[in-house]
Amino acid sequence: HNLTITQGKLFFHYNPKLCLSEIHKMEEVSGTKGRQERNDIALKTNGDQASCENELLKFSYIRTSFDKILLRWEPYWPPDFRDLLGFMLFYKEAPYQNVTEFDGQDACGSNSWTVVDIDPPLRSNDPKSQNHPGWLMRGLKPWTQYAIFVKTLVTFSDERRTYGAKSDIIYVQTDATNPSVPLDPISVSNSSSQIILKWKPPSDPNGNITHYLVFWERQAEDSELFELDYCLKGLKLPSRTWSPPFESEDSQKHNQSEYEDSAGECCSCPKTDSQILKELEESSFRKTFEDYLHNVVFVPRKTSSGTGAEDPRPSRKRRSLGDVGNVTVAVPTVAAFPNTSSTSVPTSPEEHRPFEKVVNKESLVISGLRHFTGYRIELQACNQDTPEERCSVAAYVSARTMPEAKADDIVGPVTHEIFENNVVHLMWQEPKEPNGLIVLYEVSYRRYGDEELHLCVSRKHFALERGCRLRGLSPGNYSVRIRATSLAGNGSWTEPTYFYVTDYLDVPSNIA
């Protein structure tokens, strides 16, 4: 807008934040220059609390790290170098490059900038070799853009010569660093050979998330399962459950009422301010606690030095998902009996873990797994792929695949051998790939016309006998059925096997 004052003059007093240069501009645009008398524009009460600059400061050096910015700028000295009290560095987070010096300023003089007072450097006698002032900004957020400017702080001049310097606002972004852990990993099994893994992005990506790394490792069953005799009275049979499938998407929606109208769909109840505040506090606490764990609990591995020492970490090797089922080394339970199943799973520490690289999504279907087997899954978020990966501390989750139908069934015939004193040795093959492992066998036998009897055969007993022995049988026709019990439950009964026990007292003698 054009402003013209045809008559009258300007009068400025007691404006401590208004620089004289701005008042002189007002004289020019209003056409009143030359009308004012000496005392109409006070030299001592206008701009006496402001830094009124008329020179431009330029930054000469900028260096960044993930949490620091090192700045240096060209030296500046007023005509009387004693008038320079120091520099004021202003900075704040700036997602967009549209910041002005006066953003967030209120009537009390406060604003949204963080201000650092910096002492002037030592003055050199040689004007050509003056030290460049600077400042190291610490405690910054990774991968965050900051708006920065600097200006001088000078003393009051009796001659009211307006001098000083100020830089333009520059924008500097800190470097990326390792992201925080992925949030809320959930693993479920939808079949006997697959596990579905879902997660949420890290709360602090500290860069642009480029991919996720998912490692999985087959877990050995508890050692007590191999040692305890679950045929003993009072000892509860062990059981394991597989990871249940995901709930429906509708039930997972946030901010939804727990109660549904019987007449149909209901609208979600909005969260109160107290609920939102509580969630923010919980989120802040979780982030602080995660940072504490990362800094205190997890110790970084030592990389190899120039002395030739090897990095103890196993090298990563990509495998196809079809090879995942046989990740671990199978060892027989008892070496003397080769027909026992290889369900003991000690994992070799030198073995390469299978892994998958996930790009542009937060889910993965891990296939080719062994049925009813526990897996430990390790999830890392990465925001750099080359020249070397920059990934987060791992988040861990466990899951067990679903049982395989008929995996616990005894394959092959049940054979028998009759000894003296009416002892019958029953023999059968253990299931080759049971659900988890076989903890015991149930032997059901009966003599024709009598009630059915049951015998429990422990895992250890089966390994020693290759089956079991029935003792003290009365003469007669017998039928026997056997079924295995694994961590997933009972298998199917075998087809009945028949044998006849004679009275050993009636056996004919070869003595003449």
Rank of each mutant, 00 (worst) to 15 (best):
D385I: 13
H461M: 12
S203C: 15
S474C: 10
R466H: 11
G476T: 01
S341K: 09
R400T: 06
R370A: 13
P413H: 14
C269H: 09
V324M: 11
E247G: 08
P431S: 04
L455E: 15
R301H: 06
V439A: 11
H461E: 06
L225F: 05
L453V: 07
V359Y: 11
K460W: 15
E388L: 06
F246C: 10
N360T: 12
K406L: 09
A330S: 15
F289Y: 05
T497K: 07
A463T: 12
V414W: 01
C267L: 03
I418K: 07
E310I: 06
S315K: 11
F355G: 08
L455Y: 10
E265P: 06
I482H: 01
L440H: 13
Y441H: 02
T401H: 00
V397D: 03
K278F: 07
F246M: 08
A220Q: 13
S251P: 15
F337D: 07
P312D: 14
V327P: 10
S341I: 07
E265L: 08
R286H: 06
S474G: 06
P238I: 09
V358M: 04
T401Q: 01
T288A: 02
R218W: 10
V480L: 06
S344W: 14
S283R: 09
G436W: 02
S348L: 12
D250Q: 09
S398W: 02
Y292Q: 02
P387H: 06
A335Y: 06
D323W: 12
E290N: 07
G489S: 06
D273A: 14
E433P: 02
L280H: 15
H454Q: 14
N383T: 11
T340A: 08
K432S: 14
N206G: 08
V297N: 06
G207H: 03
N435V: 00
F499P: 01
L228W: 15
R353P: 11
W242T: 08
N435W: 00
T386H: 07
G264P: 06
V297Q: 15
Y498W: 08
V457I: 09
A263Q: 14
F226C: 08
L321S: 10
R481I: 06
A263L: 11
D229G: 13
S243E: 04
E356F: 08
C391L: 01
S274T: 11
T340W: 14
G308M: 14
T347M: 15
G207T: 05
T401V: 03
Q219C: 04
Q384R: 05
V331T: 14
I438E: 01
Y498M: 11
Y504K: 13
S283Y: 13
V457S: 02
N490D: 02
C391H: 03
P300T: 13
V443M: 06
N383M: 13
R447P: 11
P413G: 15
G368I: 04
R481G: 02
L369D: 00
E465K: 05
N421V: 10
G374L: 09
I410T: 03
E290M: 11
V424Y: 06
E433K: 15
F246G: 09
V329G: 14
A407S: 09
D222F: 14
V331F: 07
P354Q: 10
K278M: 07
N421F: 04
S486L: 01
D261M: 13
V329Y: 11
D409Q: 09
S243L: 10
S203E: 11
H425I: 15
G207K: 03
L237I: 05
E279V: 06
V296E: 07
S203Y: 06
V214L: 07
V501R: 02
C468H: 09
T494V: 01
F215L: 08
P245S: 13
D450W: 08
K278S: 14
P244V: 07
D222Y: 12
M402L: 11
I438N: 03
C468W: 09
P338L: 09
G234E: 10
S367V: 11
V397K: 13
G374V: 05
P387G: 12
D323S: 08
C456F: 02
R447C: 05
S251T: 06
S486Y: 01
T328F: 14
R313L: 08
P403E: 06
K287W: 15
E417S: 08
W242A: 04
A484E: 04
K278D: 15
S223T: 08
D273Y: 13
G264I: 10
A220K: 07
A395F: 08
I366N: 00
A220V: 12
F289D: 15
N510S: 06
P332L: 08
R370I: 13
G412H: 06
F337C: 08
R390T: 04
K236W: 10
M402G: 02
Y230Q: 12
H352N: 05
V480F: 07
P354E: 13
A407L: 11
T347C: 14
V331M: 09
D261K: 07
G489H: 13
V365H: 02
C231Y: 03
A335L: 12
P205H: 04
E350G: 13
T272D: 06
I438V: 12
V297I: 12
V457P: 00
G325I: 11
T373A: 05
E217Y: 13
R313W: 09
D503F: 03
D503K: 07
A399L: 11
G308F: 04
P205E: 03
R316E: 09
I438H: 02
N326H: 14
M402F: 11
L379R: 00
H461T: 08
S363A: 13
R483Q: 04
Y478N: 00
K317I: 09
V423A: 14
C266V: 08
E388F: 05
L455N: 04
N383Q: 07
A394D: 08
S305M: 07
D385S: 03
R286V: 11
H416G: 08
S341W: 08
L277H: 12
S344F: 09
K287A: 06
P349Y: 09
D409F: 12
N435K: 00
T307Y: 14
K317T: 10
H352R: 05
L232P: 14
L437E: 07
V214P: 00
S248Q: 15
S444L: 05
L364V: 12
F215I: 12
S392L: 02
D323H: 14
